[in-house]
Design a protein around this nucleic acid. Structure first.
Length: 743
DNA sequence: GACCTGCTGCGGTATG
């Protein structure tokens, strides 16, 4: 067994006692690297390949003989449930080596934490938020607790590569180094790395080339998959006579029928995107069990359900004594080992390959067993109110495009830079609490300079500090000697326990028409006066945006119903998936993994694409509106929408592109030509984005700073605008009349 | 028509 001999004797004994017949390839390869050097390491391998042990067997071998006081290994995880899982896996081994292994998160027992503070030793399994709490409430203990760490293990590394939480953790690790004067090596674990370079930069921003990447040898993807097509029935009114209202049958009913037939009797995961879908599907499956007089084995799992309900379901899946299907949102996508899950089903086409890969990793964990994936796709009936975007059958096309990219092993790179201002504000406040007053230079050096917030240059940093000290804000204030202290609001925020996490629990915007509040909606895309959105079954035009109060003033836009194309999308699509969709339209092959209905829908989508002449044209007339189809991801579509808005158009962003409301193709062409001719710069455009604040503390940042950060993030997209607009304007034309058949 | 993630310290009372 390669590498085995170099492990600590007690670790070797533990491996034998566990009944292992050998080390996995990734484990053998990790032993030499981890035992040998002091470098940072990324271990990237499929779920259940044994990454945890690949890191811990050599790390524990190194620290087993350590005599001096001090914590040896800091393990960080994004999930409490994962901490409990990993602790369970490693506790026995640690005990045999005489090393305490302590879980440290909000629900973990307090006793072991107290003992660890008294005598730091062994391994601690912790969340970023609990590290933050240590800095805020026990800063005096930090140097002694973390002063002798050999290695920091970051589990689910990909979860920290984009968004504010990853920046937050990077700042916390940097602050541990500053507080202790040591830089422990970092070991990252991940199953889905879209961009190893980005991961290396996160691990070691000053010397990313020195991070060693240990990747699992690319085994062939062993997968059985099927795309199943379903057509929504015609939109008909339920009969009202006789007092009984019969629910019209939907595509979801047909999907539930099929799933009930194929999933009963074993363990499966069914990902259904939204809580509403999850509840509807789980309910439909339960009703079918009742109708068939068999025990129900289908249960919902999502973030609004109590922890008790969720954990009961998780243990039922793990125990595998009773057949169980969890119908879930993304809650079961990450982390904990669910045991023998036989297949994964998904409602709707995948929106990202990173997520699809992660979900697939939950099945086929048993040696030699293939992963099984079923994608259930729904499309609209073309009878009646449907429009040309429906005729393109975008869900079916996206499902095929996603499978193609899956087989190519493509994973999206992380979207960087989100939440920079928020993390800076948060960490400035936390550093002041930790140190009891800091100079502006000290703050800059800790976070920006050689720290993780490099994109915040000196000018932006000072502008941010000035904004925080504004008498109307009072997050911070400056003592006569120049030291920066907490202001009144800073005191209040940092003393609240909601301060520990860098993310907010769902912030929703209030939609207001005159004095009347229409309700609450979450908004993730760019918004400005003139945006059109759908709510409560109507279309509304935004007439005012109050970013701080999160209020949108709206007025009715057009009389009538919801727009019929795919709505302003949620998780933005990546460029590569959008491009692959175009290539699916342009090719002829009918994949064997599509069932007859999906095959028919695929063919319909291609026929429509050809009928609209979309291989040559980027625009498509639709009644009074014009669609602009760029075959780019959400980021580029949003930037194009901002540019068109700057030229005076009313726009809406969706998965297929940008829709110009109440705009005929001639005018759309003129607008695109203006964009091409004027070639707007980022600073020309950023003023048209009204909802610049998008993370927890952004509202306390000066608008100019947020604008500048938007410009930095979107500079590359804006640089492409002019060429893209010129190309789109060039081939503009009216769509020919369409004759469509309905299946 | 989004989804997910996280949480200290203290004082009171009950229990073994």
């Amino acid at each position: 067994m390669q590498g085995f001999d170099r492990l600590h004797r007690e670790v070797q004994r533990w491996i034998r006692d566990e009944g292992w017949t050998g080390l996995r390839p990734i484990q053998s390869r990790a032993i030499d690297t981890v035992l040998g050097g002091e470098t940072d390491v990324i271990i990237s391998a499929a779920t259940a390949a044994g990454k945890t042990e690949a890191a811990f067997l050599p790390l524990l071998s190194r620290v087993a003989e350590r005599e001096d006081e001090g914590l040896s290994i800091l393990y960080v995880s994004p999930l409490k449930a994962l901490i409990n899982d990993q602790h369970r896996r490693l506790d026995g081994l640690c005990e045999r080596l005489g090393l305490p292994a302590v879980r440290w998160h909000g629900d973990a027992p307090a006793g072991p934490k107290q003992r660890l503070l008294k005598t730091p030793a062994g391994v601690v399994f912790i969340t970023p938020e609990s590290i933050e709490a240590l800095f805020l409430r026990r800063s005096a203990e930090v140097p002694r607790l973390f002063g002798r760490i050999d290695a920091v293990v970051i589990d689910e590394l990909h979860a920290f590569l984009q968004g504010p939480r990853g920046l937050h953790l990077a700042c916390l690790l940097r602050r541990i180094e500053l507080a202790t004067g040591q830089r422990p090596r970092r070991i990252g674990l991940s199953a889905t790395l879209g961009d190893p370079v980005a991961a290396s930069i996160w691990m070691n921003p000053t010397a990313p080339e020195r991070v060693v990447l240990i990747e699992d040898a690319a085994a062939a993807i062993n997968i059985h998959l099927q795309i199943r097509g379903y057509l929504e029935p015609n939109e008909t009114c339920a009969s009202r006579d006789g007092g009984e209202v019969e629910e019209p049958r939907t595509a979801l009913d047909d999907i539930a029928d099929h799933a009930f037939g194929v999933l009963r009797g074993d363990n499966h995961l069914f990902f259904a995107s939204s809580r509403r879908n999850v509840e509807a599907l789980a309910d439909g499956l339960r009703l079918r069990s009742e109708a068939a007089a068999v025990p129900n084995e289908f249960f919902p799992h999502h973030g609004s359900l109590s922890r008790e309900l969720r954990e009961t379901l998780e243990s039922r899946l793990k125990a595998a004594a009773l057949p169980t299907t969890a119908v879930a949102t993304t809650t079961l996508e990450l982390g904990i080992d669910l045991g023998g899950v036989k297949s994964v089903a998904q409602l709707g086409a995948p929106r990202s390959l990173a997520s699809l890969r992660q979900r697939l990793g939950r099945s086929g964990r048993r040696k030699g067993a293939p992963a099984i994936l079923r994608v259930y796709v729904r499309e609209r009936s073309l009878v009646g109110a449907a429009g040309p975007l429906d005729a393109l059958r975008p869900e079916t096309i996206r499902a095929v495009a996603a499978v193609r990219l899956l087989l190519q092993r493509y994973v999206e790179p992380p979207r960087s830079g989100v939440g920079l201002a928020t993390v800076a504000i948060h960490q400035i406040l936390s550093l002041i609490v930790e140190r009891g007053g800091v100079s502006a230079g000290g703050l800059f050096n800790a976070l920006c300079g050689a720290g993780p917030l490099v994109n915040l240059d000196r000018d932006l940093f000072l502008a941010l500090l000035r904004g925080m000290g504004d008498p109307a804000v009072r997050l911070i204030e400056q003592a006569p000697d120049g030291q920066i202290m907490l202001g009144e609001l800073g005191e209040r925020l940092t003393s609240n326990r909601e301060f520990y996490a860098i993310f907010d629990t769902d912030e929703e915007w209030t939609l207001r028409h005159g004095v009347r509040a229409l309700g609450q909606i979450p908004i993730s895309n760019v918004l400005f006066v003139g945006s059109v959105l759908a709510f409560a079954g109507r279309r509304w035009r935004v007439t005012g945006v109050d970013d701080r109060a999160k209020v949108l003033n709206v007025e009715p836009h057009r009389a009538g119903r919801l727009p019929l194309f795919e709505r302003q999308s949620v998780e933005p699509l990546g460029d590569r998936l959008a491009q692959e969709m175009r290539s699916v339209y342009l090719s002829q092959d009918l994949p064997a993994y599509a069932d007859p209905a999906a095959t028919a829908l695929l063919q319909e989508g291609r026929d429509a694409f050809a009928a609209y002449d979309l291989m040559r044209h980027a625009v498509l007339a639709d009644g009074p509106d014009t669609h602009l189809l760029l075959w780019r991801g959400g980021a580029m579509n949003s930037v194009m929408a901002v540019a068109l808005r700057a030229m005076g158009a009313e726009t809406e962003v969706h998965d297929l592109g940008v829709t110009l409301a109440q705009t005929v193709p001639d005018r759309a062409r003129a607008l695109l030509e203006s964009v091409a001719a004027q070639s707007p710069s980022v600073s020309d455009l950023s003023g048209y984005v009204a909802n610049l604040s998008e993370a927890k503390f952004d509202a306390y940042a000066p608008p100019d700073v947020l604008r500048r950060l938007w410009e930095i993030r979107h500079g590359a997209s804006v640089a492409e605008l002019s060429k893209l607009a010129a190309g789109a304007a060039h081939a503009i034309d009216m769509a020919p009349p369409l004759h469509l058949h309905s299946t």
